[in-house]
Design a protein around this nucleic acid. Sequence first.
RNA 1: GGCCCCAUAGUCUAGAGGCCUAGGACUCCGCUCUUUCAAGGCGGCAACACGGGUUCGAAUCCCGUUGGGGCUACCA
Length: 500
Amino acid sequence: MPDAIRVRFAPAPTGYMHIGNLHTALFNWLFVRGQGGTMVLRIEDTDELRSTPEALGVIYDGLRWLGLDWDEGPDIGGPYAPYMQSERLAIYQGYAQKLRDLGLGYECFCTPEELEEQRQLMRARGIPPKYDGRCRNLTEADELRLRHEGREPCIRFRVRETGKTVINDIIQGEVIYENALIGDPVIAKTSGFPTYHLAVVVDDHLMQITHVIRAVEHLPNTQIHRQLQEALEIEPPQYAHLPLILGEDRTKLSKRHGAVAVTDYAEQGFLPEAMVNFLALLGWSPGSEEEILSREQILDKFSLSDCSRSPSVFDLGKAEWMNGQYINDADPEHLADLLLPLLQEEGLMAKDPGADRHQWLVMVAQLMQSRVKLLSTFSTWARYFFTDAFDYDNRARQQWLNDPETAPKLTALADRLATLDEWNAEALEQAVRGLAEELGVKAAQVIHPCRAAVTGTTIGPSLFHLMELLEQADVVGRLRRAAGLSAAGELKPTDEEESA
RNA sequence: GGCCCCAUAGUCUAGAGGCCUAGGACUCCGCUCUUUCAAGGCGGCAACACGGGUUCGAAUCCCGUUGGGGCUACCA
């Protein structure tokens, strides 16, 4: 009977959590929730200078947004608490001391400047830069002298100078590293904080992690981790190194790739289900041709060994398409719930709209859902549902509103609609088509100007259904307003490019 | 520079020696439906990086080249 599966997502609360981090979290989650196991959230805040509470908040928000839950973590505790590495300093110090007792850890008094100089020198000479081990065998006299100079030591780990380290990775297969090629890494900083290498190895062990699923950028580090585990007589976990998610320029995702922060995507109006679906298909495929997959379907089919080794570029366009699919398939009620706060923020919906108004919003959402890709575009594309304060776009001006024949048509239509007893799509259609017939023009010759006048744009859902959802007085008012402006020649095309 | 990984269209991918005349999806381009399209339907453009092997047969296996990426920090 194998040990219960335990995985961890272990982000550093520095900078901003991006889509690549979330991808790693998702794959951990899919693996552990599919198998039945425990998900641990551990915060690797051993970088005292760059860790921030804000970044920690972003991590929580991002995970919760996608519905990636965890069983143990800083916020909920657990049997291996604490889960913040900064609260585990004494533990790492103990292991660092153990390594020193073993003769495998030693104090190094080199300053960062000296080390940098060393690297430059080696590079200049065409030698691979690595720590040269100059503090490996310091005598007591050396040490005394160095301390007198006011130097504070860090602790390095004595790596093997010969042989190879073999890593058996679920995704990457067998990878072999030459031991002689790396220098002794720092495991405890001068500040007393551990470095990543010591902290992960110790915590993965102490927290009984069985599968380390992380981005492939950590693969080369794994040779250090394996040696550390050997030295400390720790049973290594299984490793699965995921391929990287790249930006459009094919390099590792970072701030300069624009909107990569998780919060940006949530703000833009990506649906979490869509993001989960999209991210799951980066570096993994169910092997079938379906692409729109529910969380359950993904959970059901996911396996680490099916993961790819080649990196993938995050294609925002396709992500948006997929989001559009999810919006289109969404229950309008649900959509309205998601939309409400966004609209309230823009002042387009009241703080407490009431049941009728809410039901109305559901109908608006339903009318628009097939053409919206992002929730955030809703408040611009559907603005005219909520307010008279919208602009007439260039196409509307060019094609209809600047036409001298338009104003009379709009006025006639306004007169007719003002007297309508019933305000519904059917009655509106009759009225519009009836007017067209009387004027001896095609229905389109009335419909298009009407749309332009009422919505300010040339595109949108069925005109009659759209007007049905507006107040009669508002529609009539808009028709008269546009007629007046048009007649006055104030709706000439602008020089600007059409805005999206 | 060194080490490691990767290599199917612009992008995400299917493909685990014959089923491949290389499939699907996004994008783009047509056509179509419609009062409009930014929706729907239909169709199209577009790829096995290159060179050597192995084999009756290679996108699939091996080697090399080229290209890309990652690591090479008292960051993780």
